[in-house]
Amino acid sequence: MAEPKENPFLDDPEEMEEEFDLDAAMEEDEAPADRPRVNVDAIMAERDEMRDRLMRALAEAENVRKRAARDRMEAEQYGGSKLTRDMLPVYDNLRRALDAAGEGTDQDGVIEGIKLTLKELLNVFNKHGVTLVSPEVGDRFDPQIHQAMFEAPVPDTRAGDIIQVAMEGFMLHDRLLRPAQVGVSSTPAN
């Protein structure tokens, strides 16, 4: 029979016996004096706390992602509202120019040019989600989209009916850019 080979890492066979004794001591659940005892409850509590912190961090990251997506969508839809508000007086002035010029004058070419410019401006507005709020005389006053400039008792009307449109309003998608400025009847019900 072949002789057992000695462990090349152990020079002294007595060290091998000491190592065996150490293994035996560990098997018997006797921790060496220099090894601290592990508190399983403390480790589990720390694990639970870390799991809770991780879940909260993941939830916060998801909320930030959703908020950023919503902000990006709103910026795309409503980002041009300041420019649009600045363009509304251009529309108003073109409309006034048409109202001031009468049909059948010697300025028909100029009037036609103003009409085409106004039409093009409205097309650009529509392309970008801007719609005209143009109430008619006799419509009901809606404080969500109209601004009452004055009240006056007018025969054959009900209180809250629009009796005059001073200036048209505009919406950007579902937001009011400028309310339509109207006069409202204050005639009491009979």
Rank of each mutant, 00 (worst) to 15 (best):
R70T: 14
N63P: 08
E49W: 11
K82P: 06
R96N: 15
K66G: 05
M73A: 11
M55A: 15
A68N: 09
Q77V: 15
L83T: 06
E76S: 15
R67M: 15
R70F: 07
E74K: 11
E74A: 13
R53W: 08
G80C: 14
N63E: 13
R72L: 10
V90Y: 02
L94I: 03
N63L: 08
G79N: 05
M50W: 07
R53E: 14
D86G: 14
N63T: 13
R67Q: 15
R65E: 12
E60P: 07
R96S: 12
D86E: 15
Q77A: 15
V64T: 11
G79T: 01
E74T: 05
R72D: 14
K82C: 09
R67T: 15
R51P: 09
R95N: 09
Y78G: 04
L94V: 00
L98P: 03
A57R: 02
R65D: 10
K82F: 06
E74L: 12
D86N: 13
G80T: 05
E60F: 06
A100C: 08
A75P: 01
E49I: 08
L94T: 02
T84Y: 00
A75D: 15
E49F: 10
M87N: 10
R85C: 03
V64W: 06
R70M: 08
P89L: 01
M87D: 14
R56W: 02
A75C: 05
D86V: 07
E60Q: 09
A59W: 06
P89G: 03
A61M: 05
E76T: 15
E60G: 12
E74D: 13
Y78K: 08
L58W: 05
D92Y: 03
E60D: 14
V64A: 11
E74Y: 07
T84M: 03
G80R: 03
M50L: 14
R96G: 11
A69V: 13
L58T: 11
S81G: 12
R85E: 00
L83M: 07
K66H: 12
M87F: 04
D92S: 04
V90N: 01
A97R: 10
L58E: 09
R85F: 00
M87C: 09
D99S: 04
R72V: 12
R65Q: 14
Y78S: 03
R85M: 00
D92W: 04
L88P: 04
M50R: 10
A59T: 06
D86F: 09
D99C: 02
N63H: 12
L54H: 09
V64R: 12
A68W: 04
R53K: 12
N63K: 14
E74G: 07
G79F: 00
L58I: 08
A61T: 00
R53C: 07
R96H: 07
A97I: 04
T84R: 00
T84E: 06
D99M: 01
Q77N: 15
R85T: 01
R72K: 14
L98S: 07
Q77Y: 10
P89I: 01
L54I: 13
S81V: 03
G80Y: 02
A59Q: 11
D92F: 01
D86L: 13
R67G: 12
R53D: 14
A61D: 00
M55I: 10
M55G: 09
L88V: 06
